[in-house]
Design a protein around this nucleic acid. Structure first.
Lengths: 208, 208, 208, 208
DNA sequence: ATATAAACGAGACGGTACGTCGGGTCTTTTT
DNA sequence: AAAAAGACCCGACGTACCGTCTCGTTTATAT
């Protein structure tokens, strides 16, 4: 949308202020990391960003979506998982990197907040499930698919089940504020790849 | 007077009204199941229960603790998992029963709400992690320990890891409103028991 | 029959605890003088007195009446106005003494609080007007009546008007927190006695 | 952004809703006159006005100030005291008119309530004494000053003392719910002007 | 001496209001 | 057209008091 609007700048009036956009995201980031979920409010973001609430609501439908964008922006720096490693090592590295991200940036609070916020609202729940999580799944899914292609994993590996199990494991630690236990990752991954889950014979996958 | 003039004349004071207690729990239950987490408020509970807010706050520190009690009351009817079944079947049955409980009673909303609410507040987070979840772990832990005793599972089975993996898997479905996919349980359990996670050689367990 | 038997075995029961009575009055006094009207509550009195709220309500119908008793107890030490002085001097001394009492004891706050509280409630209003104030009027009325008897004042002096004018003048200073201006008393009294108000010819008095 | 990125893009914001303002004042007026001081609450006003409590608190610091505005609005219709009358007649007419206002409009309850409420709070006390009462004094003060100018009253008339005495007299009747005794006004005024209070020789006035 | 009846403390209770916060919408003005 | 400013309604928050109501415990009196 941003691009389109800017392109048609014949005489359609003012365009979205990128400065405001950045200020809002930055304020949201700061508020989340300093005050946590409990201290996060749209009012607070507007105050800190020097923006007005309507401006925020014009671009984000609600708190959850603003938080989601904070997460996405903050986690945008590409995670590089070297291709020459074995799949279990790649996966392990991915999870470790993820936990570090959650521990050391506002991403951890943002993710927890987004999950919590999504429980309020059917629309946000769908956003979380069908879009946000699908983007989170992309990289690990690619790693697993690559492994299948390379024959490191069986052709009928139930990749979706592996994703759900992995994120379930991570969410549990995230949502019980237990992310420091990074030593739990290795045994988990080891188990996961010891006997890779397979798709059911009828071909249906087992998880979302 | 407090100190010298009197001092005798003591009493234990009036006793908690069980009627109020029940009315409040029942109202909370109803509100959760009819309006969901978004429509749940202490004001609403007070209104519906015909109780006063101070009475609620006298006995529950906050929303989270009231919700937790709703869960515990509602889930109190004993779950019986026949002893003569194999451990993987017992575990599978437990998870299925749990999902049914979450699907068909206010327990599902209550659990989701309690998790969400706990993200607000360090105190509730600890309550969730150190007390509430330990009570949830009791039955599955016992099933696994029994299996170890019966030599169905190796002596060094990492039971805590299995618990975290299992609840992680369940939470993920719960928190993405995906509990209808009960057919995902079987493959999960199958994988879990295909290669049971073992404790590390140094004897430390791998999870919480 | 049974009733008769039971009736004959009756008693008057326990008697009012003077210790509690004293403790409550003392706590009320302290609370009023330390926290003022805004910080005065029956809960607070009960707490400080080590008494229970029902005990307070058993003996005083409401806040106002408790405050009134505090005033009466506190102001009980007899005020002596020498008889050999002229009436205007006696009156002036009385008012000065009164303002000192209000300034240096909880009486000032108590009186203000009692007046304020009486605005809430018809019953207390009548108490204030018909009983409490009549007791306050007693001494000045006596001084004026004595003066009439001694022929210092005309026989048709409108004593009630003088009382109302005097207390009106004092109330205004009390209720605007302006009691330090004691130098205003002398000119007031001087004016009051310069041309003493007389009763109307038809004999009816002019004030309450 | 607040500081550097932006700073232009400003505006004065939306303007106070006169409709809300009127609705709130009107509701306060109605509540006072129907339920009296005891039945007057900010919650009640909000409810009746269809306004929100924050809107009320945005414009009035507390109950007292809202009540004060009700009084001022309600008493705004100019009181006309014909200039050609003698000062004592003008004064008498003023007081009679005032008592009628208090008796026949919510002004009476509002004044009583404002006085009572001001006893709670130092800030409101000052408001009452230094602003509200000064506005009430304006008209009678002007009448007396005019009389001095016209030489109806001596040059050294202690006008402030006369004001305090007059309002003290009126307050006493107001605060003891005794305003029906309008026949008390005439003798009071007669006495007041029979021997007008004079300023002390040193030039200081005697009252506030 | 012993029953009785009232008073007592403790404190829970329903109610009402307090003053504040946040959510999301609307209006006005400025750019 | 977009934005800042900020007013608005709504409704919830957690707390304070009010006055009433159990409770079980003294305690003075009247048998």
């Amino acid at each position: 949308m941003k691009d389109d609007l800017q392109k048609s700048r014949s005489s359609t009036g003012a365009v979205r202020s990128e400065a405001s956009h950045q200020a809002i995201i930055e304020a949201a980031r700061t508020l989340l990391s300093e005050k946590g979920y409990a201290g996060f409010s749209i009012d607070g973001v507007a105050r800190m960003a020097g923006a007005s609430k309507p401006t925020i609501y014009r671009w984000w439908a609600n708190k959850a979506q603003l938080i989601a964008e904070v997460y996405e922006v903050e986690s945008a720096r590409a995670i590089h998982i070297p291709e020459e490693m074995a799949v279990s090592q790649r996966f392990s590295l991915l999870l470790t990197t993820l936990w570090e991200l959650w521990n050391n940036t506002p991403c951890g609070v943002a993710f927890r907040s987004f999950i919590a916020e999504s429980q309020n609202n059917k629309e946000n729940m769908e956003l979380l499930r069908d879009q946000f999580m699908q983007r989170r799944f992309a990289l690990p899914r690619e790693i697993l698919e690559t492994a299948v292609r390379r024959k490191e994993l069986p052709a009928d590996t139930d990749i979706e089940m592996m994703l759900v199990m992995s994120f379930g494991f991570c969410w549990f630690h995230l949502l019980t504020d237990n992310l420091e236990k990074t030593e739990a990752i290795a045994p988990f991954v080891q188990h996961l790849f010891t006997a890779v889950p397979r798709k059911l014979r009828d071909g249906t996958e087992t998880a979302p």
